[in-house]
């Protein structure tokens, strides 16, 4: 084949593969709030934390167990089990969910933005000083969840300090919640839970 044909083939395989990896083999997304509600309702999802032991020790989603992608290769659970994964970055979580999907697990979900959403919406939900009626209603619901897990809802937060994130949809390989997460965890530990 000519040089151009080779380059074209590589581009098609890698580019097409990228699209396939993130559509067919990707686990679907779930929000930390949905996960929290599932735990509260007794649905017992299996939650896996893919970060380092130190990060896990510092803080993890209640009921989560630490694991690695390698361990997931040997994981043996009933295939319909609901599995929820989160990691230090979206790429890692995507890889892990790909592994489980390839192994036949049918209900694999990834926490959007990992631990960051849990920390800022479940563990320490914040109510803005100038919150709208709708935001207050949402906050009531989050505060109840937070108290269930021993968290600390925060009131009267200045609008500029309200946490923001991609709560709605889409995997985000470019987001860097891990930096914020580390800061948040450190702050929580300093204050004492």
């Amino acid at each position: 084949m000519t040089l151009h044909a080779w380059l074209l083939a590589v581009a098609v395989i890698l580019g097409g593969g990228a699209a396939a990896a993130d559509s067919l083999l990707a686990g679907h997304e779930t929000s930390a709030v949905a996960l929290a509600e599932a735990i509260v309702n007794g649905e017992m999802p299996r939650v896996f934390d893919l970060r380092t032991p130190a990060e896990f020790e510092a803080f993890h989603v209640p009921s989560a167990t630490r694991t690695t992608v390698r361990d997931l290769l040997a994981l043996d659970l009933p295939r319909p089990t609901r599995v929820v994964l989160y990691a230090g970055d979206a790429g890692e979580a995507a890889r892990a969910s790909m592994v489980l999907r390839l192994r036949g697990y049918r209900d694999v979900a990834v926490l959007r933005q990992g631990l960051y959403e849990w920390l800022t919406r479940v563990h320490e939900p914040a109510l803005a000083v100038d919150a709208t009626v709708q935001e207050r209603a949402t906050f009531e619901r989050l505060a109840a969840l937070s108290r269930y897990f021993g968290g600390r809802p925060r009131l009267d937060v200045p609008r500029a300090e309200m946490p923001s994130g991609d709560w709605k949809a889409g995997a985000d390989a470019g987001s860097r919640p891990s930096m914020n997460t580390a800061l948040l965890v450190a702050a929580i530990r300093r204050r004492g839970c």
């Binding site: 990228a18 559509s23 985000d172």
Partner: peptide, 23 residues
């Protein structure tokens, strides 16, 4: 801010689309 974040589309899909556009 990345395009996947902005468009709420998985990164692999953006990558595949950009590749297709370039081709």
């Amino acid at each position: 801010l990345t395009l996947p974040e902005l468009l709420h589309v998985p990164a692999g899909i953006v990558v595949g689309t950009v590749t297709a556009m370039a081709l």
